[in-house]
């Protein structure tokens, strides 16, 4: 599989990274090079192999249902680029 300029732009858009045409063009061979290389995995026979789910055997622990956190609005908003009236502020969204 080889990706073209349009695909690169689509990936950039899905990734929410704005790219100029020149940047996108430069990425085409770069990404193709890497993707072409990882595609060698296709030759591995994985018949009957389950994808790895846990690196080291371990069980998902479950928390008790207790309120142990929150009420830290100052901490939550401390690093906000724009916080007003206890909210994070973003450019107006039209839904």
């Amino acid at each position: 599989m080889s990706i073209d300029l349009q695909t690169v732009k689509k990936i950039a858009s899905l990734s929410r990274i704005s790219v100029t045409d020149a940047e996108a063009e430069a990425m085409v061979p770069e990404l193709n090079n890497i993707l072409g290389w990882v595609e060698q995995l296709g030759e591995v026979d994985v018949t009957g192999v389950q994808p790895m789910t846990a690196v080291i055997p371990n069980h998902q622990r479950l928390r008790d249902d207790a309120v142990t956190d929150g009420n830290v609005r100052d901490k939550v908003l401390a690093n906000a680029p724009q916080a007003e009236h206890g909210f994070f502020a973003v450019p107006k969204v039209i839904e």
Binding site: M1, I3, I17, L35, V46, P51
Partner: peptide
Amino acid sequence: VKRRIMIGTYVLSAGFYDAYYTQAQKVRAL
């Protein structure tokens, strides 16, 4: 960072997930 985000986005995207990501997790198991 952009390069890796883009590769990661691509290998997870519709139509490519199994060929890349699932295959990689199987090889990882091997």
